[in-house]
């Protein structure tokens, strides 16, 4: 792709991702409605799709208020960080063999780096609010992300071993014989859970657990700044879904249909699955979350690495 095309594609991607995230808010609520035997937002526009617009208008028209007791600079900076980090993460996603912003040979690492940056946003937001609920939410988020980061990375090493590359395009192409979710089932499982935790979505939304912490780290946020946090969360959801598809479900690979369509179809299904998880599984206690991470997920990820490594070695040998 030429530079100009890349720039245009980049802009389209940003617009698409942000727009997609916005639509996702509506889509998630409708889907939750279906699974909970109710209707969900259905009043505005066809199927209620204009609810997105209404919500946006509402958030835009809200008073842009910074609490007088907050650390103002950090308070304003925090919500932007998550959006920027997540959007940057999209740069390495291979939508089709030739539709991606950049194909770097450490694409996977870049993705991991970007998702890790998101923790700053949450932590800083919590600290800057100068509010006990926000502080607790921020601290939880930091602990949660640091813990789950570890085996999130480890769980992907199996994929890297099998494909022999950190480049995401190579990884997708390495799956032309067999999608990695079959050999890397354990990896997928661990990555799935870590992914939810990274994007702190239900059932792992402890940083903003409403029942205990009011709204956690974004208690003091409103209007556009709150919208940024929400945007970041949905971008994260989409990004994780893209990565799952890329790493375990063969990316754009698939018969008959154009590769892009395949990719988005797979992403869509994964997103639906995430929403299903939110709908079905209750939030664990904080200590349960931590013990799950360190006592089960980390050993599981290591085991996966060991077995994959052994198999890879034996196959080479």
């Amino acid at each position: 792709m030429s530079d100009l095309n890349t720039i245009i594609f980049g802009l389209v991607l940003i617009g698409g991702a942000v727009g997609g995230a916005a639509v996702l808010t509506w889509f998630e609520r409708r889907l939750l409605g279906i699974w909970q035997d109710r209707l969900g937002p259905n009043r505005l526009g066809p199927f209620g799709i204009l609810q997105v617009l209404a919500d946006m208008l509402k958030l835009l028209s809200k008073d842009d208020w910074v609490p007088p007791f907050a650390d103002k600079v950090v308070f304003v900076f925090a919500p932007t960080a998550i959006v920027v980090a997540m959007l940057l993460g999209f740069a390495v996603v291979p939508f089709s063999p030739d539709l991606m912003i950049i194909d770097i040979n450490i694409g996977l690492l870049f993705f991991l780096g970007m998702t890790s940056l998101a923790v700053y946003s949450v932590l800083l937001g919590g600290l800057a609010s100068n509010n006990k609920y926000a502080l607790l939410g921020g601290l939880r988020s930091a602990a949660q992300m640091v813990s789950y980061e570890v085996f999130m990375g480890l769980s992907l090493m199996g994929v890297v071993m099998l494909s022999g590359s950190f480049s995401l395009r190579d990884i997708v192409e390495a799956q032309s014989d067999m999608w990695f979710f079959i050999p890397q089932f354990l990896g997928l499982y661990v990555f799935l859970i870590a992914g939810i935790a990274e994007s702190h979505r239900l059932p792992f939304d402890l940083p903003e657990a409403e029942h205990e912490l009011t709204a956690g780290f974004h208690t003091e946020y409103g209007g556009m700044k709150f919208a940024m946090f929400m945007l970041g969360e949905y971008l994260g959801l989409m990004l994780i879904s893209c990565m799952i598809v890329t790493l375990f479900f063969g990316g754009w690979l698939g018969p008959w249909l154009p590769p892009v369509v395949w990719f988005f179809l797979k992403v869509f299904i994964v997103i639906c699955f995430f929403i299903l998880l939110r709908c079905a599984i209750p939030r664990p206690r904080y200590d349960q979350l931590m013990s799950l991470g360190w006592k089960y997920m980390l050993p599981l990820a290591l085991l996966n690495l060991l077995v994959t490594g052994a198999i890879a070695l034996s196959m080479e040998g």
Binding site: I34, W35, Q36, D37, R38, L39, L276, L277, C279, A280, I281
Partner: peptide
């Protein structure tokens, strides 16, 4: 147990809506 839950919820895709307009 969690998988059962997820499956049960998924089945609700096809059950009738309890709320009304």
């Amino acid at each position: 147990s969690q998988l059962t839950t997820i499956w049960t919820i998924l089945q609700h895709s096809f059950s009738r809506c309890e709320t009304v307009q």
